[in-house]
Design a protein around this nucleic acid. Structure first.
Lengths: 343, 343
DNA sequence: TTGAAAGCGTTACCAG
DNA sequence: CTGGTAACGCTTTCAA
C-alpha cells in the first residue's frame, strides 16, 4: 500500500557489485568509465527506472530549479495567461514553478513570500497585491540577494528587474481614440490611487485631455478599487452626474465589464450614448455585445519576458533591467460614435 | 552579488558553542532542553533568520510536501478556479503545489507526469487531456503506489479516487428545461467522442429526449472538439440544416460562446429564434448579452474536494473514493422562449 | 579505471 | 539535560 521507494545509486551499485561512485560516473557519461561497465550500468538503471533524487541534488547545490510566482489571483485571465508564459519559458529551461496567490491582500502576500523562501526557490516573479503599500518584505529579499522580478505592479525598481506595459501611452491613446471618434466627455474608472499602475494610466488619460486643451474635471475620475463591483459602482456614479460623460475608459477588464453592466441597466446604448473602452484580452472582448474595444495586454509575452529576466539574474547578470511589453489598442464595436475623416 | 547562503543548524551551534543536536531540539521545543538554553538558541535563530532546509528534511523523510497538478490548460477559468480550490486546501494542510499544463496534448501530459515524478511530488491531481486515450502512463503510477486523484475527465476509477460532476443529470436537466419552456428541437454541441465527459453529457441530453418520447436525430448532435472555434463551427453547421434546431445545448463554456457568436452572426435572436444553454461560471455568463443560462460547476469546491481526497490517500487511506460535486442550473436570459404554467 | 570517504542540513537514537 | 553518530542520496576530491 505504501509508496514504493525509488531505487538509489547505492542499490544499483550493490546489485552490480561495484561502488556508488562508479555508478554515479557511468550515469553521467564520465569518460573515465569503461565502455562495457557504462553500458551495463545504464541498462540496469533504465530497467530499474532509476531517477536521481532531486532533494539530494538540491542539498548539495542548494538550487532546486524552482521558480516561485506570486500573483494577486490565479483565476483572473490576465494573470493566468501571464503565468502560462512564465511556466512555458521556465520549463523550457529546466525549471519548475510554484504558483501562489496573494488574493490582493498584503498579509497573504507576505505569507506567500515567506513560504517561497522557505521552500528555497531559486528566484521569484511577483505582482504586488492591491493592498501592498509597504515594501519592506521585498527589501529583505534584496539584502539576501534573492533574484526577483516584478511585473505590472512593481516596486523597488532600483533593486529588481521588472516588466511593465506602456501604461501612460496606452491609456493616452485610448482616450485620444475616443476624442477623435466623436466622444466629448471622457471619464476614467481606475483603482486604488496608491497603485503605480493607476497613477500611470490616469496620467495617460489626463495627458490626452491636456493635449486637446480639454479642461480636466475631477468628477469624471472614479478611483476606488479594481473589480467588477467597483466598475459597476463607478459607472453608476458617473451616469448619475448632472453632466454625465459620453465615454468611459475603464482601466481593467473587470472594471470594464462592471461598467458595461451599469450602462446597459441604465437603458443606455453603447457606443451611441456612452462609448466604452476597457483593458482586456481578445477572448473576453469578443464574448460581450457590442464587442469591447480594448487595450490588449500581450500577457503571454509579458510572462515569458519576466521569466527571461529572472533567468538572467539566476545566470549571474547583476544589472537590473526594465522591459516594456507594449499594449495594443484593438478597436471593436464599443468605442466609435462617428468616424472622423481626418486625412 | 551571489545569493547569501542561509544559516544552518551547524553554524548556530558553533556560534553558541553547543552541539547541533541541542540546537535542533531547542528549536522544536523539545522538553529535554533547559529553559535558558532554549531561549538563547531561539533568540539567535530569530536574529540570524534561520529557516530549516526543506531539502534536508525531504531527503530524510522522502516527502517534500508538494502536490503536483496536471490540467489541460491553466488559462481557462474552469481549471484555474479548480486549481484555486486545490491550492487553498493544500496550503491549509501545509502542502505546496506545482501546476503543470498538458495543453490538451497526450505527449505533453506524459511529460508533465514525468516531471512531477522526477520532482518526487507526494501525490498528483490530474484532469486528462482531450487527446489522451491511452492510460498506461497512469497505470505505471498505480503500480508504484503514487497517490493520485482525477477530476472531471477521469480514468482507471478502480485504482484512483476521482471527483466528478453529475454530468448525465445536469445535461438532462438542461435539456428538459428547454423542452418545458417552449423549445421544440434541441441540438447538442459536444467534444471528442472518446471523452468520458462527452459521452455522459450526451447521454443526459438523449435521456431527456427519450423521456419526452422525442425521436433522436443524428444531425442535431455535433461532437468534434472542445473550444471556441468548434462551438462556432458547430452552431453554423446546425443552423445551416434544412430543419435547424430552435435550441442548443453546448456542453462547455467555450463551445457556448462560440455558438453564441454564430447565432448572432446569422442574424438570429437568442432565445426567441435559438435558445442557448452553456456550461460556465457566473462571471462569464453575465458578461454576455443576453446573460447565458448555464450549468454552473462548483469549481472551487471540486478543487477542494479533489485535494481532500488526495490528502486522504497521503494519510494512508487505501480505499478508492468517487465524489460527485453536482452542477447547478442557473437560469438567465438565453434559454426561455415561453414560461409554462405547469403546476 | 575504480573505490573510499567527506560533506550538504537535518533528525533520531544511544550514550553519558 | 546534552553530545556524538548514523543515516537520507548524491557529487566530488583523493587514493589506489
Amino acid at each position: 500500500m505504501d509508496k514504493k521507494k525509488p531505487v538509489s545509486l547505492k542499490e544499483l551499485a550493490i546489485e552490480l557489485g561495484v561502488s556508488i561512485s562508479t555508478v554515479s560516473r557511468a550515469l553521467k557519461n564520465s569518460p573515465e568509465i569503461g565502455k562495457e561497465m557504462r553500458e551495463k550500468i545504464k541498462a540496469l538503471a533504465k530497467e530499474r527506472n532509476y531517477r536521481p533524487n532531486p532533494f539530494a541534488m538540491s542539498l548539495l547545490k542548494n538550487s532546486p530549479r524552482i521558480i516561485g510566482i506570486i500573483v494577486p489571483d490565479i483565476v483572473t485571465h490576465y494573470y493566468s495567461s501571464i503565468i502560462s508564459g512564465i511556466n512555458d519559458k521556465a520549463h523550457e529551461n529546466g525549471y519548475s514553478t510554484i504558483i501562489t496567490s496573494s488574493y490582493e491582500q498584503f498579509e497573504k502576500e507576505k505569507k506567500c513570500l515567506e513560504d517561497l523562501i522557505n521552500i528555497r526557490v531559486e528566484g521569484i516573479i511577483a505582482c504586488l497585491s492591491q493592498d501592498t503599500a509597504d515594501y519592506t518584505h521585498f527589501e529583505t529579499l534584496a539584502e539576501q540577494n534573492v533574484p526577483m522580478v516584478f511585473f505590472d505592479r512593481i516596486c523597488l525598481t532600483d533593486k529588481f528587474s521588472s516588466v511593465i506595459t506602456n501604461n501612460v501611452e496606452s491609456s493616452q491613446e485610448a482616450t485620444e481614440h475616443f476624442l477623435s471618434t466623436g466622444s466629448k466627455r471622457v471619464a476614467f474608472i481606475g483603482g486604488a490611487n496608491h497603485l503605480e499602475i493607476v497613477k500611470l494610466r490616469k496620467h495617460g488619460y489626463l495627458q490626452a485631455l491636456r493635449e486637446r486643451k480639454i479642461p480636466i474635471e475631477r468628477e469624471l475620475v472614479f478611483c476606488k478599487r479594481i473589480g467588477y463591483e467597483a466598475g459597476y459602482e463607478g459607472a453608476r456614479y458617473l451616469l448619475s452626474l448632472a453632466n454625465p460623460p459620453d465615454a468611459i475608459l475603464a482601466m481593467t477588464d473587470s472594471l470594464a465589464f462592471g461598467a458595461m453592466k451599469a450602462i446597459k441597466e441604465a437603458g443606455l446604448t453603447i457606443p451611441a450614448d456612452v462609448a466604452l473602452i476597457g483593458y482586456t484580452d481578445e477572448l473576453h472582448a469578443n464574448y460581450v455585445d457590442p464587442p469591447l474595444t480594448a487595450v490588449t495586454h500581450q500577457t503571454y509575452k509579458m510572462g515569458e519576458t519576466a521569466c527571461t529576466l529572472l533567468l538572467e539574474q539566476l545566470g549571474g547578470v547583476g544589472k537590473v533591467n526594465q522591459v516594456v511589453v507594449p499594449c495594443i489598442l484593438s478597436v471593436r464595436g464599443s468605442s466609435i460614435k462617428e468616424v472622423n475623416h481626418v486625412d
